[in-house]
Design a protein around this nucleic acid. Structure first.
Lengths: 406, 406
DNA sequence: TAGGGTTTATTTAGTCCTAAACAAAGGGGA
DNA sequence: TCCCCTTTGTTTAGGACTAAATAAACCCTA
């Protein structure tokens, strides 16, 4: 009922870092305009960041009709973040700079259903961090396929991993003595998209991922919508038909049971496009080669996705839909049927909703997870809670050691 | 990207009025707890409200282990708000006290498709206001079936009314010289529910209305979700089948084309339950009397609604669904099939989502619209913009005229 | 009846932000 | 060359909120 004072908004400082990281140096006035805050506040925030050693004045002065701007740039040695993607059979790690760029990545086999998976993950993480650059680790962001109570405590429920109330965040915090932020993988991706991607220019958008599963990250008024129990965005389980195939959630006819990777492969096998051991790459190759049964499978998937998302668009009224995920490698075969199904199921006034498909890379999931660290280091009482404060503490402590003696 | 300072949070003051109005007198400490703000702020806010003459100290002192509380109550003569419901063939007005209670209501025939409907509405509104109580009118809230760019400017698009870019808010502001807030009718209802209803105790909920159309008001983290163009919540146009009946939006197979009032009546006529001129009351009566064809029609509607809302629940993860609208008069016939369809289409972890059906009255729509005025009088730069400031100005000016000479 | 515990209310200091006034540093035209 | 205009950056005053200390008013028990 009552509005709180905007989640301890030192988030702004990481927004400055993100902006400079993604777009290169800028003046204070530019930053104030882009980030939509007052110039006065920008002066203040940049003063802090300069004092903390995270920013530097670049002394450039290309005049532009008035007083020339003093450009500000990131001090890239101030620190880096670790991003982790956890799935059933492996984990992927990335190390990203303070500007969000990937510096290093790795992938390791992992068994999420093992009884000692927490210990194993700790070991793998320690090893990856040990092999890293000399700049300080600001924190660890972890993306999981499932719902998370809140980013700071990191209590995970995941049908896909077979996890129930797993204290992932708390355990890793204790073991590694570093700030750890856990979030649903799609929400993490939405956060990254908001900071570094197309979402930077939009306040209301949808990040839809296709691949093994189907999910959505929802950004409303600039913030990721988590819902009551942190489980918003499960669009893969929107019911599509009354008596469809059984889904991993136990119900019948979910969207994911039609267009998830497993479902597409099953269709391909019954249609004779694939043998018993062919995978998604083979199916994509078949479609590329003009196999009509293969293109039909993708086309049907596009159609189903389009109709289901029409419902979501009617519900949320986003400005743009961003499609991501492993499944986008074959997007050209989904695209046409998707567009037709989506637009024709939308009310006339919504037909202009934009659709963007971004370049997908193997490490994108882990990179998204790292954005958790870079996005919330200062947000002391928001999503990240205590962990945000810890990240900030590390940043200041490492980059301005000369102040430690005072 | 950057968080603003929580929408000029004098909203809190109207929250205090709403709380006291709905729940009777309370102490400052109680208010601080219920509204979740610091006692310090409560002292400050109530000081202002007392000075403005909107609150009075009741000098009561029922002790409770410690220092006895000084209760605060609303000065109900400080002003009232007008709520207006606009539909195709009539308008309904209510006058509500500063505590949200309905003082007076009226309904007038109206033709939204007439070329002079703006002038007619002005006349009707003037007449209703003139017949009202002597306390000052704080503002006018208007609920329309359609999307509104923002509450302050009140530019309306409505397929149902045949309106395109109608400057409803601006026109009435000019003609009546009063603050006017325009909002989608379901969003207004959600706001009222948040202030006075079940939603007071929840931060994430869904208000679903059934009647002529089907709509949803979405409240996330305590605020009404409006979407990019103010059109969120159009759940009536979620596609349900590929080749269903034609909907008012022009598409086929929308939820509303199955369970809207017109669709139910059509089904009843083809099933022979109703003659050519029977209405919803007759259909409800038939079901009450045990007519199995009639109960089956409601049951099917409940089933369809349940499945569609399962998708919405997966998308938004609300804590509770509140069902409202004219259609709830026959809810007992929807209920069973609805519950079964909803729960069985939900993932196991979501099955506990609560469903509440609130008592529906004729004037509820208009009452919801009035909540716009009572909820946003102080929110100077939020949804209501200028109009919010104007409401506040009227409140202070009217209730503390002795300060006018200073 | 004095003192400790509780609950209520206010004050104080401080954070995060804005708006508005101001200062600083250029450009270009009369 | 001087003045005006534009853009950048800073300072100042103030609003909205919080946490923590304090005061105020009651209860109960020893």
């Amino acid at each position: 009922m009552v509005f709180r004072p905007a989640a301890r908004t030192d988030v702004n400082r990481s927004a400055i870092l993100a902006q400079l990281g993604a777009h290169g140096p800028a003046s204070r006035a530019d930053l104030a305009r882009v980030l939509d805050v007052s110039p006065a506040l920008m002066t203040q925030l940049t003063r802090d960041l300069l004092a903390d050693g995270l920013l530097q004045e670049l002394e450039q002065a290309p005049s532009q009709g008035g007083r020339p701007a003093r450009m500000l740039g990131i001090v890239s040695t101030a620190g880096h973040a670790i991003g982790v993607k956890v799935v059933l059979d492996h984990v992927a790690f990335v190390e990203v700079g303070i500007d969000g760029a990937v510096l290093r990545s790795a992938s390791e086999p992992f068994d999420a259903s093992s009884s000692t998976f927490l210990a194993e993950l700790t070991v793998l993480l320690r090893r990856f961090i040990a092999g890293g650059s000399s700049t300080p680790v600001l924190g660890i962001g972890i993306g999981v396929p499932g719902s998370v109570d809140n980013q700071g405590s990191g209590l995970v429920d995941s049908a896909q991993l077979g996890w129930s109330q797993v204290p992932l965040g708390a355990t890793l915090q204790r073991e590694l003595d570093l700030p750890v932020l856990v979030e649903n993988n799609v929400n993490a991706l939405a956060m990254a998209e908001r900071l570094y991607g197309v979402g930077r220019r939009h306040d209301n958008f949808l990040v839809v991922t296709i691949g093994t599963g189907v999910g959505a990250g929802i950004v409303v008024d600039g913030a990721v919508l988590r819902g009551f129990s942190g489980g918003a965005g499960e669009v893969g389980h929107i019911p599509v038909t009354e008596d469809g195939p059984v889904c991993s959630c136990g119900n019948r006819g979910c969207l994911e049971a039609y267009i998830g990777e497993a479902a597409l492969l099953r269709s391909a096998r019954t249609a004779g496009v694939l043998g018993a051991q062919g995978g998604m790459t083979a199916l994509g190759a078949a479609a590329d080669a003009g196999n009509t049964a293969a293109t039909a499978i993708f086309g049907q998937a596009g159609h189903r996705l389009g109709r289901a998302l029409a419902g979501v668009v009617h519900t949320l009224d986003p400005e743009i839909i961003i499609v991501l995920g492993e499944g986008t490698s074959a997007w050209k075969h989904w695209s046409f049927a998707f567009e037709v199904a989506l637009r024709s199921a939308l009310m006339p006034s919504r037909r202009q909703v934009a659709v963007a498909v971004e370049n997908w890379q193997d490490e994108s999931w882990a990179q998204g997870a790292a954005a958790l660290v870079l996005a919330t280091p200062f947000d002391s009482d928001g999503l990240a809670g205590d962990q945000g404060r810890l990240v900030r503490a590390r940043l200041v402590e490492q980059s301005a050691p000369q102040e430690a003696g005072s």
